[in-house]
Simulated scan of single mutants.
Amino acid sequence: MGKSIASRFDNIDVTRSVLRAVIINDDELTLEMDFCLEPEHADYEAPGAGEECCFHPGLLKFAGISKLGLDRAEQTDPARRRFAIQSFHIEGTKFDMACEWGTIHLQARSIRVLTE
């Protein structure tokens, strides 16, 4: 039996993580993330000078999307590549996130958490 979605975020501080990109492809959505790892995480390394977190690249992949709502925030700097997360919630097949990029609400058949 696979791990629950919530357990896949063990030792990851999602609200201190950042969104790097939103990629839409057919009935799939991929969120490129820099996850903020907590000291208990197996891949944790002490943050360098001037860094507040041990950031580790990863992906959230949603497949078989039956409902999707994206509301892009007004961006003042088009070169911006990292967006802070304000709220993050996954329950069953439902996902909601608000961040500086905008808001994402969806329902998907498959939700996968991948770390690189």
Rank of each mutant, 00 (worst) to 15 (best):
A21G: 05
E45H: 02
I5C: 11
A79I: 09
M97W: 12
Q86G: 13
N25R: 07
S4G: 12
C54W: 11
C99F: 01
M1R: 11
I65C: 02
H56T: 06
T15V: 14
F88H: 03
E40V: 01
L60V: 11
G102I: 01
R20S: 02
T30F: 06
R72P: 05
A46Q: 13
N25Q: 12
D96A: 13
R72S: 05
P39M: 03
D26Y: 01
W101C: 08
R109P: 00
T93L: 12
K67G: 04
P78W: 09
E38G: 07
A6T: 13
R109G: 15
L70I: 06
N11I: 07
D26F: 03
G50C: 10
L114R: 12
A21P: 05
R81H: 02
L114P: 00
T30W: 10
R72W: 00
R20W: 02
I24Q: 09
A73Y: 04
L70Y: 11
E40N: 08
G48Y: 07
D77E: 15
E45K: 06
D34M: 12
R16H: 08
A108Q: 09
Y44H: 05
F62L: 09
L31S: 10
R8Y: 11
E38D: 14
I12Q: 11
L37S: 08
V22L: 09
H105C: 07
A21Q: 14
D13I: 00
A73R: 15
T15L: 15
R72T: 04
T115R: 15
E91Q: 15
K3H: 12
E51R: 00
G58K: 07
P78M: 08
G48N: 03
E91N: 13
C36K: 14
H41K: 08
E28T: 11
I90M: 08
T93P: 09
G102T: 06
Q75P: 01
S87M: 02
R16W: 00
I23D: 04
S17Y: 06
A84T: 11
N25S: 07
M97K: 03
L106F: 01
D71H: 00
C36S: 14
V18M: 09
A63K: 15
C99R: 11
H56I: 05
L114W: 10
R81M: 13
L31C: 04
Q86H: 07
I23K: 09
C54A: 06
M1H: 12
S110W: 00
A79M: 13
K3L: 15
S4N: 10
